[in-house]
């Protein structure tokens, strides 16, 4: 991201204040999709830097899971053991959280996990573009999970799936109130699922960019660079944890759909 000396915009007050102070923060510019070929507008079909990094993601997945396990070694190579580790991790998570009967949904959940994990980690490379910081993208993931699980619940249990919201243990007069709260919390699930992921990744990248802006000041630069290192370490942790949380919450929601009775 290049520093621009001055920018003439509709929001003049903000930018003037920024350029007068000598500090120029454009922490959100890293999320702008730019066309790979030419400078034209980014239409829905335009190959952009988003396309580039999603392609890199798919290539990385192919590299780890297909090329890595090419040898099919009984004694695994390094990359193969990484793939097997993730496989075992997600498989065990589904078995533990959702139950043994959910193993047939393993490919879908594994795809989600691998996609989010690789997107998070590739986004930490300098100059890269982070797909999972896009609220639209995480919303498609989150609502996709939500709709799929809801449809699955109704297909498997019919209207009995609505029993998920009707607490039989609660005292009678409380049941409608609890049902309303349960319904609301059920519909908040995809929102929180998607905003959590996008918000975490966006927040990390914005904070790093803001620290990088401080590094332009001579006096503050050592502290700013140390801060970037520290935040980068935290972001490596967050990238893994958010992929884990996204997957495990999907497993928890899937469990509700498969076994709606509490």
């Amino acid at each position: 991201m290049k520093l621009r000396k001055k920018r003439v915009t509709q929001v003049a007050t903000e930018t003037e204040a920024a350029s007068e102070g000598g500090l120029v923060f454009h922490p959100l510019d890293q999320f702008i999709p730019t066309s790979l070929f030419g400078d034209g507008a980014v239409h829905w079909y335009t190959p952009s830097n988003l396309t580039l990094w999603l392609a890199i993601l798919v290539l990385a997945v192919v590299g780890v899971f297909v090329l890595g396990s090419r040898g099919r070694g009984i004694v695994p190579s390094r990359i193969q053991s990484v793939g097997e580790l993730m496989y075992g991790f997600v498989y065990k998570m589904i078995e533990d959280v959702t139950g043994k009967d959910a193993v047939k949904y393993f490919p879908y959940i594994m795809t989600l996990f691998v996609f989010v994990l690789f997107a998070n980690y590739l986004a930490l490379l300098p100059m890269s573009y982070s797909p999972t910081s896009m609220i639209a993208i995480t919303a498609v993931l989150g609502f996709g999970v939500f709709i799929a699980i809801t449809v699955l619940g109704f297909v498997k249990h019919g209207t009995a799936f609505l029993g998920l919201f009707w607490m039989k243990d609660a005292p009678g007069f409380l049941r409608p109130i609890i049902a309303i709260i349960e319904v609301i919390s059920y519909f908040v699930r995809p929102v929180s699922l998607s905003i959590r992921l996008a918000g975490n990744i966006t927040a990390g990248h914005v904070v790093i960019k803001v620290f990088a802006g401080f590094a332009a000041l001579t006096l503050a630069s050592p502290a700013a660079i140390l801060g970037i290192v520290a935040i980068y370490g935290l972001e490596i942790l967050v990238a893994g944890i958010q992929a884990y949380v996204f997957t495990i919450l999907t497993c928890v929601y899937l469990k509700d759909a498969l076994h709606p009775a509490h």
């Binding site: 999709p33 980014v42 239409h43 829905w44 079909y45 335009t46 952009s48 988003l50 396309t51 999603l54 392609a55 993601l57 798919v58 997945v61 192919v62 899971f65 297909v66 396990s69 099919r72 070694g73 009984i74 695994p76 193969q80 793939g83 097997e84 496989y87 075992g88 393993f106 490919p107 879908y108 594994m110 795809t111 691998v114 996609f115 797909p131 896009m134 639209a136 993208i137 498609v140 993931l141």
Partner: peptide, 30 residues
Amino acid sequence: PHQIFWLLVALAATFFVMSRIALPRIAAVL
């Protein structure tokens, strides 16, 4: 629309790679 389109393409590619090639192979190896 741009983001969603390319996300779906990438997800489909990832799912294809995982479910058709990678996961059966790893399961067989394990």
